[in-house]
Amino acid sequence: MSAKRIGAEAVAEKGWLRAHRWLILRRISQLGILGLFLLGPLAGIWIVKGNLNYSLTLDLLPLTDPYVALQSAMTGHLPEKLGLIGVGIALAFYLVVGGRVYCSWVCPVNLVTDAAGWLRDRLGIKGSTHLSRKTRYWILGMTLLGSALSGVVLWELINPVSMLHRGLIFGFGAAWTVVLAVFLFDLFVMSRGWCGHLCPVGAFYSLLGRWSPLRVSAPARAACNDCMDCFAVCPEPQVIRPALKGEGEGIGPVILAANCTNCGRCIDVCSKEVFTFGLRFNNPVSTASAAPDENL
């Protein structure tokens, strides 16, 4: 991988901008959301109040993190009216666009772990501690059970996602040490370690988006030249294989795995334009006959 930069072929074929389109949009989304939250405390322009756990936009739109609300519910406490409406809106949104869209388009820790992943690739750091990607579901279960047993919203005691976001908005304190730990863990200990293996927030959102209609699809998979760039760039590479290589096994081109974060990096780095955003229903068993431009 260090011999050739990931996506070099795509840049040569499509130009830099088109080979980074979704990445740029994603960064705009992440930084834009963060910026909206920061506008209040930094500039006194209060468009959004609160943080990712619960926010109120323009004193009108409540948004509640359903995972935090669920932990709170496990301790026996339900939100007030606005909090409940916020849960409903967030649930509806992520049910449609895909749960882990939260991870790649909203979560500020993604910036940290993406930076770690990029640096890991740049420095050519090989070898990664092996841990099952299912670990996060065990941790998710533990936080829910633990909340019920301890009566405390358990994961919020150490959640790096809310620590980073809250830290930026309300003042960091020692929260930067936790963020640095996540960065160094991803860089030196485990490739894609935090977001891909451990984080129960992502695990929760993956379950939430299990049946979401908006999906990355590989309708032009017949054009794949096995350059492996998509596997190298994907934070959850295991989700690609069934869709990309499923022609012979009668599996459609839509990436149905719940852990696809809809980040669109595979679309960017593919020089053959194999991938595109589409709907899960548009999933024919065979794409061999279809010309690439007839699909979405």
Partner: peptide, 22 residues
């Protein structure tokens, strides 16, 4: 168990009395 650590109370306090624990 009930507090979801959103900081809305901190924001709406006109005297900056409240802060969120670091």
């Amino acid at each position: 168990g009930a507090c979801i650590r959103c900081g809305l109370c901190v924001r709406d306090c006109p005297y900056n009395t409240l802060e969120l624990a670091k």
